[in-house]
Design a protein around this nucleic acid. Structure first.
Lengths: 238, 238
DNA sequence: ACCTGAACACCGTTCAAGT
DNA sequence: ACCTGAACACCGTTCAAGT
């Protein structure tokens, strides 16, 4: 690995002696503490998001992240304890992008609808974070915490019984996470192929959906489930 | 790695000359094709499941799998194309354990309830498979395909409109997958800790749930969501 | 066809040394 | 405190050689 890195370093003819903190391609910085810190958690988060959007989650390695920030991989560990920490930073950034603005403004059902669709859309591009967020103590992610507070307040103000609010949010979230994966499923995921005649009911149902649908299958399923949840939960309000 | 393996091999005094195909600890087998194949996909699947149950998914490496089968890691690639293939084999084995027996026997809502709870319970112990199954073309997994056929037939026989069956199953599945993660969440996942006073609505709702609950929070949320989905979808039947 | 043994190209993480 | 450079202990996968 190190040999590879050394080989990738371009031998620059007469490099400017002032070291730059820019991304890959900048000149060598000599060892020792720099006068001003190069890294911070915000910069790491931004670089991680950029890397994810260009190379996907497979491209998000500590080495690649360090390279895009113009530092050695080990430098990252002065600012995060682990790669999991980087994923947490990214997750919390994304949580702030989920639309909770309708709570307290629009009717409860419309607010839930907006929140759930936006939540699904944000994380469908970041499914590798779902195992992280799904078991993440909210105290570790301030923006995620703020999202839950906004949603909880919206439920309470809409007359939702207090002891059922968390359960309803957890259920909606479970549905959102699963649906985020489904967005990335291939369109023909239910095609049985050569085994079609062994599963006639499934094949018939798949064909009927394909014939009559007027939107993306994943969106139809999401809408169907979300409206059932909204209707069912809405009936709980006092 | 190879050095490590060699160091781990115990120098047995006068080993029995007949090579055994047993698990780790057996004598060295010399290179070349064995008279009878040692591996097959069923054996690999069983060994993978055993490894997962004892060491978890972090312990499921191609090296560990090979060791438990008494072969070199490279031998696995004569029977599977990749580690992802191993995960597929495990996933399909688990799909056969999901309870679809109530479809066509009990009323539709009871059958869906049984199926969904059992589906959640099976995969809550195997959450690393969820990203695999969620985007898996069913043609690649015969037992998974059989599960979908049974569920689809149950929906059709219950008078479900054919063009909505797949969407309803996809929605229920999304909920099940998200809920499977939630089973593994820490109980205090929503405790804001030192930030509690900044999120008063969330904290109040968490406290109320903790005070009044008579079951596991994850089961209450699952039941709440599942019953809403069953009620909403049940109304679609003709 | 189906093994072994060696190698390859990666990973995340640790830690001494430097300023 | 916050970098670099080197090292460590892994990964999954490939492939020639052997029977």
């Amino acid at each position: 690995m190190l040999g590879t890195q050394a080989a990738e370093r371009l031998p620059m003819p007469a490099p400017t002696p002032a070291p730059s903190a820019g991304p890959a391609g900048s000149v060598r910085r000599r060892a020792g503490r720099p006068t001003a810190a190069i890294l911070d958690q915000d910069g790491i988060t931004t670089a991680a998001l950029e890397l994810i959007s260009t190379k996907g989650y497979n491209g998000l390695t500590m080495a690649a992240l360090a390279r895009s920030l113009g530092v050695a991989p080990s430098a990252l560990y002065n600012h995060v304890a682990s790669k999991h920490d980087v994923l947490l930073l990214v997750e919390d950034h994304l949580a702030a992008m989920v639309d909770v603005s309708a709570f307290g403004v629009e009717p409860w059902d419309a607010a839930v609808r907006r929140w759930a669709w936006s939540y699904r859309d944000v994380f469908s591009e970041h499914t590798p974070l779902i195992p992280v967020i799904a078991v993440l103590p909210v105290a570790n992610a301030p923006k995620t915490l703020a999202m839950y507070e906004a949603v909880t307040a919206g439920f309470r103000d809409a007359g939702f019984p207090e002891e059922k609010i968390i359960s309803a949010i957890v259920a909606l979230e479970a549905f959102v996470f699963g649906a985020a994966y489904d967005v990335n499923a291939p369109e023909d995921i239910f095609d049985a192929g050569s085994l079609a005649e062994q599963v006639p009911n499934l094949t018939a149902a798949v064909d009927r959906l394909a014939k009559e649908r007027h939107a993306l299958p994943t969106d139809i399923a999401f809408s169907l489930g979300l409206e059932a949840l909204i209707a069912g939960f809405g009936a709980l309000r006092g």
